[in-house]
Amino acid sequence: MNNELENESKLTHVDQSGQASMVDVSAKTPTTRRAVATGFVSMTPATIALIKDNNVAKGDVLATARIAGIQGAKQCPSLIPLCHPLMLSKVAVDFDIDEAQSKVNIRCECKLLGNTGVEMEALTGVSVAALTIFDMCKAADPNMIIGSIKVMTKEGGKSGKWQRDD
């Protein structure tokens, strides 16, 4: 990967004595920070059809998952220990129904002007959206698989722009 942070060997959330510690970002220069994460939920073609035709008994799956993903990104510091509470300026959750692969692709973009990155918020947005899709469709398809949740790109801060090579 073309990641400048690969060479850093110390863990930033552990102090000198090995105790968990929230990183002090107060000395960092505020910049526009942006991150995009993706993932998917694979399912049967019949479940894809239910979602596409809005025939899932619990309601509109993608609309509900979008709201859940946005809320998940906003709640990241309540869910993940040591994450900073951030004033997000943008959270967008989008879906692509891939009928050929029988899956729903999920993309979450988070953005802000601040002292620390938004990768965890984007990952949490994708994760919560995927869990919501699973929850709403599990009666029709308990064999669904949530997979490949990853950061695709991040921008801002001292390290600049990073993008996944695969």
Rank of each mutant, 00 (worst) to 15 (best):
D15M: 06
G18Q: 13
Q19L: 09
S21K: 13
M22W: 12
V23P: 03
D24S: 10
V25H: 01
K28Y: 11
T31G: 13
T31D: 06
R33D: 05
R34C: 04
A35I: 11
T38D: 09
T38G: 07
F40N: 11
T44N: 03
P45C: 10
A46P: 00
T47N: 11
T47C: 15
L50P: 00
D53W: 00
D53I: 00
N54G: 00
A57S: 15
D60K: 12
L62G: 00
T64A: 10
T64K: 07
A65N: 09
A65S: 13
A65I: 06
R66I: 02
I67C: 08
I70F: 04
I70C: 03
G72M: 11
A73K: 08
A73C: 11
Q75M: 12
C76W: 09
C76F: 03
C76V: 14
P77Q: 08
P77F: 14
P77R: 08
L82I: 10
C83T: 12
P85H: 10
L86N: 03
M87H: 12
S89D: 15
S89Q: 15
K90F: 02
V91N: 04
A92V: 14
V93R: 06
D94A: 13
D94N: 15
I97C: 01
I97F: 01
D98L: 04
E99F: 02
A100D: 15
V104T: 04
V104S: 03
R107I: 02
R107V: 10
C108I: 11
E109S: 13
C110K: 09
L112T: 06
N115Y: 00
T116P: 02
M120G: 02
E121K: 11
E121I: 07
L123D: 00
G125F: 05
G125D: 03
V126I: 10
V128H: 01
L131Q: 14
D135Y: 12
